[in-house]
Write a protein that binds this DNA or RNA. Structure first.
Length: 215
DNA sequence: CAAGAGATTCTC
DNA sequence: AGAATCTCTTGC
């Protein structure tokens, strides 16, 4: 029995209601590991000309300063400059010649920390997400990876370095499901070659939409 | 299923 | 050169 099955209310979500539930600015002004954990269960909302799509965050990773796996480890560069902006800044990077991944900047301005959103569970606008992920045939693989969710939600890479906290932002976070404390797990991060031992990945236990069920 | 490799381009 | 990935193919 899957306790994460969609509830009826999810099908009735509309943009106005979700906007009223936006996470406040001070939600992001906390320790980066705490933010990575606290974003689990929250909604990530993306509005485009095609419509609105919403995903519940089920997996995140923290990238800290003094962290060999972080893009910011060797200091500020043109690429990672958004990481050194205020918390709530969008950091989108291009990877492996094909893909984009989405992070929220965390921690104090100037230190270079962020939370990578690794997987979301489709909540609203599911048809739109399926359309954008045309090649994906399996229901639970529409948004179970950092580049997949960018595609599914239609996150525009040109949003890089903009603030999520702005009222006009087409991309923002909102309060979502209450999470029982026992549902959160922590593990090493995925796909990195340095900093492998650090348990900076957070996910919702037994959620079908996490990116890698083995970790 | 699990494992491996190609895709494809930007950054340092 | 190598990358905070995805997809398809191959082989068991």
């Amino acid at each position: 029995m899957n306790t994460d099955a969609p509830s009826l209310s999810r099908h009735t979500l509309n943009l106005k209601e979700i906007k009223a539930d936006r996470l406040p600015d001070n939600f992001f002004k906390k320790d980066t590991l705490a933010l990575a954990r606290d974003l689990l269960g929250k909604y990530l909302v993306s509005t485009t000309s095609e419509g609105t799509a919403v995903g519940k965050i089920v997996e995140t990773e923290a990238y800290l300063t003094e962290d060999p796996a972080s893009h910011a480890f060797h200091g500020q560069t043109k690429r990672n400059a958004p990481m050194f902006q205020d918390p709530g800044t969008i950091y989108i990077y291009f990877i492996y010649g094909n893909h984009y991944c989405f992070n929220v900047v965390s921690g104090k301005r100037g230190i270079g920390e962020a939370v990578l959103i690794r997987a979301v569970e489709p909540v609203s606008g599911v048809e739109l997400m399926e359309k954008r992920r045309k090649r994906c045939t399996k229901q639970d693989q529409i948004s179970n990876g950092p580049a997949k969710l960018v595609q599914a939600l239609g996150i525009d890479p040109s949003l890089n370095n903009q603030s999520l906290l702005s009222q006009e932002s087409p991309l923002f976070f909102a309060f979502g499901d209450e999470l029982a404390p026992g549902k959160i797990a922590q593990s090493p991060r995925i796909g990195i070659s340095k900093g492998k031992g650090l348990p900076y990945r957070f996910y919702i236990i037994a959620n079908p939409y996490i990116s890698n069920k083995k970790h």
